[in-house]
Design a protein around this nucleic acid. Structure first.
Lengths: 235, 235
DNA sequence: ACAAAAGTGTTACCGTTACACCCATGC
DNA sequence: GCATGGGTGTAACGGTAACACTTTTGT
């Protein structure tokens, strides 16, 4: 029996979530495949890794080809690498294998501008209404969605997604949209977050028409440092 | 500028932890590299993925080449794939790239038998006394150790590592060894675990010499099912 | 009887939950 | 004045932490 090593091309597939805090919608970015395999199917935006390019660089490259955005969070998700996950691998198992390293990203819908959305080949899909996807992308998406919710509860990723200054309501809306309404009472969420001490009052207030003006806060990474690695819960 | 795709060989590196509940020791399995690069350095046991082989299969293959053990937990950790992480990649960046998909495994020291430990090229190293490692393996190890502690707190992985029936003390020792003494009072740990309701009293008791005999429990996956995906905490 | 190991119980404390309530603004 | 959105306060509840205590065994 031969023990030959497999040869791989490595792809990076991104699960890019965008949160619309205003209208409480959670989207994922899908692209329509222009060619076989899975021609005309929707899929996660992906690319193959080039010579001299790191995995993360490749992930950022796809993202920046599709979206212009200032604040985002991105991390590696999982690596899917079974043989025959890509039909391009011929069944005699002597062809090149395609391995997919997936990443997940989070950004705000209102801050993101789609590049080339005239063609309609790149679209935000509501998470509730995902069509059938190419390859094992549905599985990757599910995995990413689970990770997103976990990360939000236990890590300060929200502050990498929000702009420099933000209101506690902006933050709350972000959480609501992802974790679902009533994940926590607003007033309790508020006091918990403020008690941590890493949200600095900027002194300025923002007036958005009717109603009391909201205080603008800034994430103070100095003050957050000691809490790093400890089990935070933003419930 | 050329946009040529990189060609990869894919390696799997395992961070294999073993817990010695009796003597409160936590080990990681290291192997001495027989050849360049990093000849004679200690490293995580790894292998390159063969044709027709899945990543997970490769991970189990290395493991079973080194250890005979009945119960273990294994999961994918992270994929390290920057260019030049392996010196075999020549600097002109036109050579084959080496990507490492890492896995972490947990098993019990007392249940594991090392295969071929005469040569001394495969050894359990105490986590406190890790030597300099080859490649980026120190980084992988640190990552694995963090994951191990998290998993133990939030997932029922302990029950995949313990034998079919076990005492609450076996379980407690496992937790103590990994999370550190005083991670929780024994009596509190005990009542929390029993309250969950997924530990079934087998009715039998085990007599280990002096002292009151211990009740043997079995993990009841039926009873655990409804708790799945919910945020458990075994603190 | 005593030491060792297993198992039970109790209490003070602290954080969460679910509200009700007060404040500042535009119309 | 009143609707609207922002912000504060509080009291009941439930779980945790720390520790003392009881039970069952071997010698």
């Amino acid at each position: 029996m031969l023990k030959e090593l497999a040869d791989f091309k490595v792809g990076v597939d991104n699960v890019i979530f965008s949160v619309d805090g205003q209208l409480n919608r959670l989207f994922v970015l899908l692209v329509k495949r222009p060619k076989d395999p899975y021609q005309a199917y929707w899929s996660l935006p992906g690319t193959l890794v080039r010579k001299g390019e790191s995995l993360e660089t490749a992930a950022y490259r796809i993202l920046s080809e599709k979206i212009r955005v200032s604040n985002l969070y991105l991390e590696q998700l999982y690596t899917f690498g079974g043989p025959a996950r890509d039909p391009r691998e011929s069944s005699d198992s002597y062809a090149v294998r395609y391995l997919s390293v997936s990443y997940f990203a989070l950004l705000r819908y209102e801050d993101a501008k789609l590049i080339d959305n005239h063609s309609g080949l790149t679209t935000w899909y509501n998470l509730e209404k995902i069509p059938e996807l190419a390859f094992d992308h549905r599985e990757i998406l599910n995995y990413g969605y689970r990770r997103l919710r976990n990360k939000l509860e236990y890590s300060p990723i929200a502050f990498e997604v929000l702009p420099e200054v933000f209101t506690l309501n902006d933050l709350y809306q972000l959480y609501c949209t992802i974790l679902g309404e009533n994940f926590s009472d607003y007033s309790n969420f508020r006091s918990r977050l403020l008690k941590f001490g890493f949200l600095a009052d900027t002194g300025t207030k923002i007036y958005k028409g009717i109603g009391r003006p909201a205080t603008l806060y800034r994430f103070d990474s100095q003050a957050f440092a000691p809490l790093k690695d400890r089990p935070l819960v933003f419930i």
